[in-house]
Computed example of a mutant assay.
Amino acid sequence: MLAEKGELKAQNKNLYVASLVAQLGSFMMGYTLAYTSPAIPDMEDRGVLKTTDQISWFGSLMAIGAIFGGPIAGFFVGNYGRKVAMMMCFLPFVVGYGLISSLDNIATLYFGRILTDVGAGMVSFSTPVYIAELSSLDLRGMLVGVSHPFIGGGMLPVNALGCDDGSLGVLVLWGVCFLSTIFVALCVPETKGKSLEEITKDFNRYNRHL
């Protein structure tokens, strides 16, 4: 009985850690949702966004990017697995914010904004799918719902740090993306086509990283 309890405790620990790692994508989604709030006034002051139309487009392009993010994530989830899909979510964030921080021209800003929102759309699809497959029935609702605090946590640094020159905030996001990729690669198992028992066995192999 004690051995069974100890095994269950270890399994739950692995589950919590893997879920938190997966939710780092939700952190980046929150960052993206809040980004335009401090960024637009800063870009106006420096003459990057010069007209009301430019400001409106930059603020509203999220809807366009998110439309494509879900189907792209669905393609990776179905063909390459949930783990690969989550890792691919980080790529449009890195490239998109890199383009935005360059402040080269208005077309670059627009394209960068679309890419970051593609990443947000990919996260909104792939992360809940992964966590739902990973979790036992009694913990599934709670672990999927943790995405909301992480989204709020992503909104905090962009508003607290601001977007002056785009550098500090972008460095924070790039750091999160890099760590997320490493953690997902090393610390979480694939769930595609596997039962909870098979996933638990995979957890045992990953346990040394947790």
Rank of each mutant, 00 (worst) to 15 (best):
A63W: 03
I72L: 09
L33W: 13
G119E: 01
M1W: 05
N79D: 08
E44R: 07
L156E: 08
A39Q: 06
I55K: 14
V94F: 14
V94Y: 15
D45G: 10
G70I: 07
E133M: 02
M86Y: 07
A18M: 11
L168W: 09
T108H: 09
Q11P: 02
H148S: 15
M29H: 07
L33F: 12
V17T: 10
G69N: 03
S147P: 14
G47Y: 03
V118K: 05
N12E: 12
V184F: 12
V188A: 15
N204Y: 12
R46S: 05
G96Q: 05
P92W: 00
S60L: 10
G153Q: 07
V123G: 09
M122A: 08
I131S: 06
A73Y: 00
R113T: 06
F27C: 04
E4N: 05
D138H: 14
V172C: 13
H148C: 12
V21S: 00
I151V: 14
L168F: 05
A63M: 09
S60D: 10
G119V: 01
A22D: 04
R82W: 01
K50A: 10
K13R: 11
P71R: 00
L24R: 01
T116N: 13
L173E: 03
T32R: 08
A73V: 09
K201R: 13
I106F: 13
F76K: 06
C187P: 03
G121Y: 00
V118T: 00
L20D: 09
D117M: 09
P38E: 08
L91C: 11
I114V: 07
E4S: 05
L103K: 11
F203N: 02
